[in-house]
């Protein structure tokens, strides 16, 4: 370890307060939100005592549970579809050499930088044009599409780091194409696929803007339900739901990171 005092970065004036300000601004609201989820008072902003009753109320709320189930259905389905497509795309892009390949690669990742509201409006108009009935199906379709680049990037990165000689070695040792893929390529790729899938899942679970536009009646997901709750008034119930969602997100992202580190 180098001595922090000798690192030129730490001699930059005002670095420490700026860093503190950044972290406080970023995490203080979340800490407050988590704390107030355990508040006994009806008013979310006034602390009166510790209680877990809001979590109980959340779990008794049938509408909320339905929204949560919808979210799970959408996220799971979209993740499976998006990860499968992303894996195939990554394998294809890694092997094939064709003109305009860089362009195609950029197009796959482009949804990451297209403003979500643009995608949302465009997708809605597109569905209406095609005469689709809005519902869980359209939400799943939209989520699958915007999850693909998130799943694609870690898988592609993993593939890029793989020695192409490994496949040759497998075939040299009498493994046919299918065996080569199952016995050598897939085990190497697995951490990338899991990592990509978890990222896709959390992105889907979290999404509000696109979902809000393309979800019809009865296709309310958890973020949309929470938004609806807030419009009525902020109750500690919202805090409790948010705390639960945060916990799920943290678990998934942490797992994704851990799996991604395996066998690097």
């Amino acid at each position: 370890m180098t001595d922090p005092a000798k690192n030129p970065l730490f001699r930059f004036p005002g670095l420490k307060p700026a860093a503190w300000l950044f972290f406080v601004f970023l995490y203080a609201p979340i800490v407050v939100l988590l704390a107030l989820a355990f508040n006994d008072n009806e008013q979310a902003t006034i602390w009166t005592g510790f209680s877990t009753r809001w979590f109980g109320i959340v779990l008794d709320n049938a509408d909320l549970i339905r929204a949560f189930n919808n979210s799970l259905i959408v996220a799971t389905t979209a993740t499976l579809l998006a990860t499968t497509i992303a894996t195939l795309a990554a394998l294809g892009m890694n092997r094939a050499r064709f003109r305009g390949q860089d362009g195609v690669n950029a197009l796959i990742s482009l949804p990451l930088i297209v403003p979500e509201i643009v995608t949302a409006v465009a997708t809605l108009l597109f569905f209406i044009m095609l005469g689709f009935r809005l519902g869980l199906g359209t939400v799943i379709l939209a989520h699958t599409v915007f999850c693909i680049p998130f799943a694609y990037l870690p898988i592609r990165a993993r593939l890029e780091g793989m020695d192409p000689r490994l496949e040759e070695a497998a075939q040299d040792l009498y493994a046919n194409r299918r065996q080569t893929f199952l016995r050598v390529v897939l085990p190497q790729l697995w951490p990338g696929i899991i990592s990509g899938a978890m990222l896709a899942f959390i992105i889907s679970l979290d999404d509000f803007v696109i979902t809000y536009f393309v979800a019809g009646a009865g296709a309310t997901t958890l973020p949309i339900y929470i938004f609806g709750m807030i419009r009525i008034g902020i109750s500690p119930e919202v805090n409790a739901v948010s705390a639960l969602m945060l916990a799920i997100s943290i678990v998934f992202v942490a797992a994704s990171w851990l799996v991604g580190r395996v066998r690097r």
Partner: peptide, 20 residues
């Protein structure tokens, strides 16, 4: 013939051992 149908085996310069 594809490589897996040839009774010929290779020692690679980079060894290409299966890391997993």
């Amino acid at each position: 013939l594809p490589p897996f149908r040839r009774p010929v085996n290779t020692v690679f310069q980079s060894y290409a051992l299966f890391p997993h």
